[in-house]
Design a protein around this nucleic acid. Structure first.
Lengths: 180, 180
DNA sequence: CCTACCGATCGGTAGG
DNA sequence: CCTACCGATCGGTAGG
């Protein structure tokens, strides 16, 4: 799976053939079918496996923390850590889920909506607690998720920032913006 | 080109065949080659055409406006307007440029870096003018661009928000964040 | 703009 | 885990 995810990160789902994957593992393509049922299984297990991890992360945050600022901080941290710990898989998760066939594609979108909704609830809590401005939640959540997900585009494990530092900078940006 | 861009938005570059495009135009695949040199030309003209429009937009903003806050506002507005006016093309531009072959892929990345740099200069101006906090510019620019680009994922022309309203909300978010 | 076709490659299977 | 192979489809060309 890891080999396949890395190749799909570089070349996309359609741009990576079963023969490519097999060659990278010093096998013939036919041999792969003793381990997986088909090419789509790679995509399915990558997308749904990560979706579950992300959801578990935010569920845990909502169980443990009470203050909306804290919840947002920890939710961002959980998300960024999962992304950086599963870089290739996350890239595939973010970019290639569209290649899932129905009904899996619809199911994936459903899980995504559920995750977005958990963030929305945090923002609403924040407003109720008087900590956050009144904002368009749907819009704000999409903006937050996009800035988090973009991390997979440029993050390098040996770069200057740790996942925790990235999460902190992101949270600062989300909470306070650029203006002095 | 518009038909091809729309199909590639739905199915990706590799997921859209010349036969698919031809069928949507009531032609045979072979006939397409009287109009374009090959499949990659669709991707090239989409990606480089938009890259030039985005760059012109920010160059104009930098020529006309002086205050960094104004520049940022107008740069976001220009970006969002171009995105929403060319939704299918923008989607391909953002998601499918990786399928460009060299040397075009490298050239595209170069144009992208140039565009990012123009945003970075605006943020530096803002700090010099005492309007913006001291921040990690590279990080801030990537966050801003990601939140702008994500608009293509959910924007619907007949939805509740105009491009200008989206640009305003985004600018507010970028400048002031969520916290009260 | 079409018919007819090319070589290459795809995901996957049979059978061992 | 392999050899051998299937039908389908791909981007693209020749020639009209």
């Amino acid at each position: 799976m890891e080999v396949a995810q890395k190749m799909m990160r570089d070349s996309g789902f359609h741009g990576t053939s079963m023969r490519d994957i097999a060659a990278a593992m010093n096998m013939e393509a036919a041999s792969l079918y003793n381990h997986i049922s088909g090419k789509e299984e790679i995509l399915k297990s990558t997308c749904f496996g990560l979706a579950e991890k992300f959801q578990s992360g935010i569920d845990e945050v909502n169980d443990i923390y009470f203050n909306a600022v804290e919840k947002l901080q920890m939710a961002v941290k959980s998300h960024v850590q999962l992304l950086t710990e599963n870089l290739d898989a996350s890239f595939v998760f973010i970019h290639e889920w569209r290649n899932l066939n129905e009904p899996y594609r619809a199911e994936f979108v459903h899980l995504r909506d559920k995750y977005e909704n958990a963030f929305r609830v945090i923002l609403q809590n924040g407003e109720d607690e008087g900590l956050f401005k009144e904002v368009d939640y749907k819009f704000a959540v999409l903006t937050i998720l996009s800035s988090m997900n973009w991390v997979v585009e440029w993050y390098k494990p040996d770069g200057g920032m740790t996942p925790v530092q990235i999460a902190e900078k992101l949270t600062d940006f989300i909470l306070s913006g650029l203006k002095k």
